[in-house]
Structure formats: C-alpha cells, structure tokens
Design a protein around this nucleic acid. Structure first.
Lengths: 160, 160
DNA sequence: GCTTTACCTAAGGTTAAGTTGAGGTTTTAG
DNA sequence: CTAAAACCTCAACTTAACCTTAGGTAAAGC
C-alpha cells in the first residue's frame, strides 16, 4: 500500500503537500530542483514526501518573509542533520539565526529612515555627497547645511 | 552652441549625468523609458538633460534603498509639478511620504521578528495556523503551545 | 473497465531592473 | 580633416522565483 489516500498518512503526494502547505505544485517541483526539499519516487515515478517536509516548507516561507533568498535558505537548511528528522531545537536554532539577519535588516532600514529624516532639513539629496546613497558612512557622517547641495558635484566635475 | 562641454552647463549629456549621478548610461536610458526622468534631443538626436535630473536620480536611488520599486517611484515622482522645477519643499514632502512607507516596512519586519521570537518557545512553525505566514493576523493572534503543531492541518485535510 | 483526476518531464514564459552587444551616427580632440 | 570617443536604437541576455503549457503516464473513483 504505497499509494497515499486522502487520509492522513506519513507519506504525502505532491498534491497533498501543496494543499497543506498552501503552495503550488510547481513551486514544490522548483524547490526540489533547488535542493530545498527532497522526495523519493513510488513505483509509478510519482513523488512521495515525508511529513516533515511541511515543517521545512513552513520554515522556507517564514524565511522568505524575512527577505531571505532561496539560496541562503538552501544553504542554511543544508546544515540540518541528514541522518535524523530535525528536532524542534534544530528549527529553533535556525530561527534564531535568521532572526539575527532580520535584526540587521531592521537596523539598516532604521538607519536609512533616520538619515532621510535628518536630511529633509538640509535638503542635501545630492548624490555621492549624501550618506543616503553611501550606506558605508551612513552612521558616521551627517549632513548639515545647504553647502552640500549641488556644489560638490560641480567641483568634482571640474576635476574630471 | 548647443553642445555641452566638460564645463558646468545647465544642459547635460547622458554621459555627464551618468558620471555625476554614478549610474550607468544604460540605466538612464532605462529610466527614461519608464518615465522616471525626461530629456529632450539636440540637433543630432542626442539626449540633453536639465540639471535637476540629478536631484531626481538622487531621489530615485534613495527610494530604491528603501526597497521601493521603480513603479512606485515613478508614480510618486509623477505627482511633482510639471510646470516648474521642483522646489526643496517638493522633494521634502516626497521624502516624508517615503519615510512613512519605510516606517511601515520596519514595523512589519519588527512584527515578523518578534513573532519568530515568540514562536521559538512553542515551535509552532506549522503553516496556516502560525501567524508568521499569515501577516493579517500577525498582530492579533499569538501562538501558544504544541497543540497548534500539526493537528489543525490534519483536521483541515480531512474536510477537503 | 473506463473515465476523470493527479502526476510526470521539459521547455518556454513572466516580472524587475537593468546590462550587453550589434550596427550605425554625432561630437570632440588634435 | 580625421580618428577616437560618445551617442543612438533595438534586441537579446541576466537573475530570482516561480508559473504555464504540452504531451504523456499513473492512480482513483464508480
């Protein structure tokens, strides 16, 4: 009895996974080619999945919501133990890992926002000179005054 | 004398704009097709830009850093007065507009992070039931306990 | 047993935001 | 005046994350 029914069974067909995880079948095929999920085939060459694929997909979707690329997700997932079904702690540590990334992103966006905020006053939206476009010095520098407005470009152009 | 030189002039060639704004010429062509910037042509069919295109590009780049799409940027920029060169206040109000969007994004990411944080404890990374995948109820609901883990899916699957 | 539903693979399409290249014209520098 | 640098258009390519379609097989329902 290798064929799954609509009853709850430990091995799921691609359609069942799709319905439960609320993703398209094509997405599952795609994830498989990317090594994000795995399956084996039954006698008729159809995919069969272990139930923990649902958790995996859940994690994938959560990570995507955090703005993490599938490549990064794949890399992180590949660190899960292959020998055993991942434990709750496995997933939790993964979650903590991505949380840190999220924190970084939030911090970056916050810096950008504050910088835009600070720059409204002086109107220094001129490129190269304004920290908004130069994330590296986004923390250190500050823009103060109309001097930055257009003149620096002029000076630079003259030197080229 | 309609041809721009390396000296500072009110009308800029595409190459000059590219250099000053630190973007590729191809990107400027692209922006123009998308209606983000505008130019007129000289006798030899070459693009000429008004200087305020630099400010425009600066704003475009700033908005992109905030994760705003070119389409949205175009829509916002199209609200600028066509009749006159935009004033500092025009740009400032635009900046405030995007800043609000940034705030939203930050708030969203923060909610996601906090939710992931809260969910580590109960391990409820199961789809549909977990607020992480359901941004709509991300604020209201909370996940508490292992009950949510897999059972709800089972119940739902049985009904389909 | 037959028909409908589910599944298979492989190739091509989609969107965003550009980049690259071909083939040809214009400007600029000397 | 001539050669190099800059510019022009148009089409095709790029990456990510899938979706769609075609042509064909397998499984499930009655």
């Amino acid at each position: 009895m290798t064929t799954p029914t609509t009853r709850d069974e430990p091995r799921l067909s691609v359609g069942q996974v799709a319905k439960r995880a609320d993703v398209a079948v094509s997405a599952l095929h795609f994830y498989e080619t990317k090594g994000l999920i795995r399956s084996w085939r039954n006698a008729g060459n159809q995919r069969r999945f272990k139930k923990d694929v649902l958790r995996r997909i859940a994690v994938i979707k959560a990570a995507q919501k955090m703005g993490i690329s599938l490549l990064e997700i794949q890399e992180t997932l590949s660190k899960l133990p292959e020998s055993r079904t991942p434990t709750k702690e496995d997933w939790a540590s993964m979650s903590r890992f991505w949380q840190a990334k999220l924190d970084e992103k939030i911090a970056y966006m916050t810096r950008v926002r504050d910088m835009v905020d600070g720059c409204i006053g002086c109107g220094c939206l001129s490129m190269k000179s304004c920290p908004i476009y130069n994330p590296d010095d986004i923390v250190a520098k500050e823009c103060n005054g109309a001097v930055i407005l257009d003149q620096p470009e002029r000076a630079r152009a003259a030197k080229n």
